[in-house]
Amino acid sequence: MFENLLEQPAVISRLTHDLQTGSLPSSILFHGPDYSGKMTAALELARALTCHSEGAPWNCSCHSCNSHRLLEHPFIIMTGGRYFYEEIAASAQPLANREDQVFRFMFVRNVRKLLRRFDNVLWEGDTSKLKKNQPQLTSVTDKIELFLPDRDLPSEKKREKLLKDILADCKKLAAAVPASTPINHIRKISAWAHRAGERKVVILENADYMQEGARNALLKILEEPPANLHFILLTTRIGAILPTIKSRVRAYGFSGRTEEQSKLVIKRIFRVDENPYHSLREFFLSHHDIDYSELKKLAELFIKSSREKNTAFRDVVPGKFEREMFIPFLEELTLALNRFMKDAQGNGVNTAVLTRIARWNSKIREYAGNFEILNQSHELLLESLYYEMKR
């Protein structure tokens, strides 16, 4: 088990022990930075929990495991947002001129991580919301079948066109996935979980992003969980999880990967021997049509301008700021602030400066939530953040 989870030995050891001794609780929480393997671990754990063979071996060929490998298993639900497009684009690139089975599996799985967010269980009765995405859902579902490992791949020229079309549709679908799991999804998951049947697994990403109603609905399920149901919550911010929820789950911490470990993962998974990337984040974001070097410059300019009284927002951001750049920019700004804080601590800067940086980081998290959960204007949030940093 967990052969595909790289550079997380402590997590693998704990999960394997808890599975083998039968001490794994029904509700668990994976916490750690983005790109640390939380979803990889969650999917492999879901496979092991529903495997029909003793010990859930990695190469098990039971019907349940075969369904899991292609993310077709009927008793697994995935909800919450993630970096869908970057992940899909990264796995599509090698398929343009290579036919390896491993790349086909990886591409199909990454696309279906997105498609499973539109499962009927989650959207039953909300057909109006699905209607505008139905053309893309149908198109991607049909086209992805051509890349299944047991099929003859289309010609290289046709493959290039198919991949381009799939990526374009996936980009639209990814934008339609709620960043946080809404309360109606939690209620539908509860109804689904109480139906008789085999063991079920719910993987809930961005558990820290849920609004109060959704959190309370989730808490009710965790307090009285149905038989044969496992919840796997994922978060990058364990401190933002309600204490009442944390008290009902067992937490497993994932460590951030070093530059060396990131390069190893890129080499092992994507077969890229030489790469200029310092982290998995850089690698995945390189597959997005955003100039991240410009975002990095803008983040540094925000910090510099915070110390200049007479610099207006439009002096720093003179033109239109695209919606899809907002969250990547906040991530770059957070990284820049963390670098600044590290340097400040090394140079013995007073605590007032460190307190100010901590306040900025708190505002960044708040504005990210306002954008992704409350759908507030990214341009107004960006300008508000700029002036908050000048206070």
Rank of each mutant, 00 (worst) to 15 (best):
L335H: 09
L335I: 11
A336F: 06
A336G: 04
A336Q: 07
L337Y: 05
L337M: 13
N338L: 14
R339T: 11
R339E: 13
R339M: 07
R339F: 08
R339W: 06
M341L: 15
M341I: 14
M341A: 15
M341V: 15
M341Y: 07
K342E: 10
K342P: 00
K342I: 02
K342D: 05
D343E: 14
D343P: 01
A344M: 08
G346E: 12
G346F: 07
G346C: 10
N347A: 14
G348E: 04
V349R: 10
V349N: 04
V349P: 00
V349K: 09
V349L: 05
T351R: 14
T351I: 13
A352N: 02
V353S: 04
L354N: 09
T355H: 13
T355W: 05
R356Q: 07
R356T: 06
R356N: 06
R359D: 11
R359N: 11
R359V: 02
R359C: 02
W360P: 04
N361S: 03
N361C: 04
S362N: 04
S362D: 06
K363M: 03
K363Y: 01
R365A: 14
R365H: 05
E366T: 03
Y367H: 06
Y367D: 01
Y367G: 00
A368T: 04
A368M: 05
A368Y: 01
G369V: 00
G369K: 03
N370H: 14
N370I: 06
F371W: 09
L374C: 06
L374N: 11
L374Y: 13
N375G: 00
N375T: 09
Q376V: 10
Q376M: 15
Q376R: 12
Q376L: 15
S377M: 08
S377D: 12
E379M: 14
E379N: 13
L381S: 12
L381F: 09
L382T: 05
E383Y: 01
E383H: 01
E383V: 03
E383D: 04
S384A: 11
L385M: 01
L385W: 02
Y386K: 13
Y386N: 07
Y387C: 02
Y387L: 05
E388S: 08
M389A: 01
M389H: 01
